Amino acid sequence: MSHVPLNIPQIKAIVFDLDNTLVSSDMDFQWLREQLGCPSSQDLLSFIDQIDCQKTQANAHSLVLQHELEDAEKSNPMPGCKSLLNFINSNNLLTAIITRNCSEAANTKLSHNKITIPKVITREHFPPKPAPDSLLFLANEWQLDSSEILYVGDYLYDLQAAFNAAMPSCLVTHGKHTPFTAHASLIVEHLSDLEATISKHY
């Protein structure tokens, strides 16, 4: 996997991941894996979907939901979040959120952090990232070419989803080392750096 080239003047929409992209998250996935018996090599949501016993599967979903809601109440906007969203709104760019969170947790996080983005796509709507379905849905709804949408996230799944949808991607590192940089069209430390980069073209 590589990345799709980014041409900033062509961008008409900026779509975001939620956790540790727009708002902070302290989800303890290692703890969840241990509670559910999910191997470290397997995606947690895929593991739950493959549980045969409906009661066990329902309990697993309930545990994840509880963890997500607790995380939502402790979350804060990431540095540069509000300013970037104001910039997007002021320049009439389209925007949305695509998250692996459930709808209840995602909406709780947005409400808690006073973030208003009308279009929020969660794991109830489409197969979760790295599947490209949600991004392709947006491109079709907005009648945009894939190259006109920038997807912003902090993790490999975000970059993979963008690449699978033939879209450019932006990796937000928060100043930390990450092994995913080769798969991003653009790399920034913080959302304020993304705003500074884009604003040069407006």
Rank of each mutant, 00 (worst) to 15 (best):
H112S: 10
H112D: 07
H112E: 10
N113S: 04
K114I: 11
I115E: 04
I115L: 13
I115R: 07
I115H: 05
T116Q: 11
I117E: 02
I117Y: 02
I117M: 07
I117Q: 01
I117A: 08
I117N: 05
P118R: 05
P118F: 01
P118Q: 10
P118M: 08
K119P: 00
K119E: 12
K119R: 14
K119C: 09
V120K: 03
V120R: 03
V120T: 06
I121H: 00
I121Q: 03
I121N: 04
T122N: 11
R123S: 04
R123G: 02
R123W: 01
R123D: 02
R123I: 04
R123Y: 00
E124P: 01
E124C: 09
E124L: 08
E124D: 14
H125I: 11
H125K: 12
H125Q: 15
H125W: 01
H125Y: 08
F126K: 11
F126S: 04
F126L: 07
P127L: 12
P127G: 03
P127A: 14
P127M: 09
P127N: 09
K129E: 07
K129A: 03
K129M: 08
P130W: 12
P130F: 09
P130R: 10
P130Y: 11
A131D: 15
A131S: 15
A131E: 13
P132K: 11
P132D: 07
P132M: 10
P132Y: 07
P132F: 08
P132C: 09
D133W: 08
D133H: 15
D133T: 15
D133N: 15
D133I: 09
D133V: 12
S134H: 11
S134N: 06
S134D: 06
S134L: 02
L135D: 06
L135E: 06
L135C: 10
L136E: 12
F137T: 13
L138D: 00
L138V: 09
L138Q: 05
L138Y: 02
L138S: 02
L138E: 07
A139S: 15
A139E: 08
N140P: 00
N140W: 00
N140T: 15
N140F: 00
N140V: 00
N140I: 00
N140M: 01
N140L: 03
N140H: 13
E141F: 04
E141H: 07
E141K: 15
E141R: 06
E141A: 10
E141G: 02
E141Q: 15
E141T: 14
W142D: 07
W142Q: 11
W142M: 10
W142P: 10
Q143I: 06
Q143T: 11
Q143W: 01
Q143R: 13
Q143V: 09
Q143F: 03
Q143S: 13
L144S: 06
D145E: 15
D145T: 14
D145Y: 09
S146Q: 11
S146M: 02
S146F: 01
S146C: 06
